[in-house]
Amino acid sequence: MQQRHLNRKQYFCELANTARTFYMEYLNTYIKLTPDTRVLEIGCGEGGNLLPFAEQGCKVTGIDICQTRINEAQTFFTEYHQQGTFICQNFLLSEEPRTENERYDLVLIHDVIEHIEPSNKRDFLLHIKHFLKQDGIAFFGFPAWQNPFGGHQQISVGLASKLPFIHLLPKPLYKVLLKTSGATASIIGELMSIRASRVTIENFERLVSEVGYTICKRTLWLINPHYKQKFHINPRRQWTFFANIPYLRNFYTTSAWYLLRQTQKQS
């Protein structure tokens, strides 16, 4: 397991720097950030992604299923003298906003969809629509399943945390490798859940279309922008030719970014 996964303040700062450097620019064509902008992050963790939006004066809310992460988010926002609302809850059980004004201009879902059980993905995407304003934007980011570390094995320990593509091994062999490397039962369980989820570019695009989203913008990254913080490597987009090769592109897409809007019904 990398040090950043143990040092949550470092992790918070790295996420904030990535959001400040890359998310703002990525969004600026589609949404203008003002003090009236309402931003929700689902699976907010310690809240690092939300900090730059709070610094811009936006009204930010984070929701996460882990109380420890919510506590850390509140602590870190206080340290940075920023305002934010943080809620510990399963998003699928969250009460829907009653009015348009209570909904959000921007919903962030970064490195979360791959943690949602396959049977819950459709309901998850449909539930998000109730939180978006009619012209709101949903930002999704996730690692394509077949990329070298698409299984999140880096959160494990020992040799397994450093080996690319091992998540593509047959399930029994993958579990044995994780266990012999020293992974705990909880880590193995989380990695098996991600393995079951298997989010590919094709599956994601098919599902969002089925539940009524329109893709406004898509960027497939050969080198994930967050690697600037993690490894001091400059980000690089996929070359257009390779980005347009279905299925194969999952093997070399370290992050897929999407801006979605609700599909408008024809009158």
Rank of each mutant, 00 (worst) to 15 (best):
R236C: 12
F86Q: 11
N71D: 15
N17H: 03
F149I: 03
F231C: 06
Q146G: 01
W145Q: 05
T200Y: 00
N250A: 05
R218W: 02
D123F: 06
Y30Q: 08
L132A: 11
C216S: 14
E114R: 01
R38E: 14
G43F: 07
R98M: 12
K265D: 11
R218Y: 06
F76A: 03
R69E: 15
H130I: 08
T68L: 08
N203M: 02
F140T: 05
L106T: 12
P97Q: 04
G136S: 12
S186K: 10
K228F: 15
T78W: 01
T253P: 10
F242Q: 08
N17G: 05
G136W: 06
L169E: 03
F86S: 13
T85N: 14
Y26E: 12
T75E: 13
G141F: 07
F22T: 07
K265M: 10
S255F: 14
G136N: 09
K179H: 14
L159P: 08
L191P: 01
F165K: 00
Y247S: 08
Y174C: 00
A160K: 02
A160R: 03
Y213K: 01
E25S: 15
A73W: 00
K121A: 06
T75N: 09
S209L: 06
M24P: 02
Y80H: 13
G45K: 00
W221E: 13
F131T: 09
F241L: 14
L125H: 04
Y23G: 06
Y247E: 13
N101R: 04
P143D: 12
I194A: 00
R98D: 15
P235M: 08
L40H: 02
N203T: 13
A73M: 02
S193M: 09
Q146I: 01
E95S: 09
E41I: 00
R122S: 08
R195S: 09
T21D: 11
F77W: 09
I245Y: 00
W221P: 09
A54E: 06
G151H: 06
E55P: 12
Y213M: 08
Q238E: 11
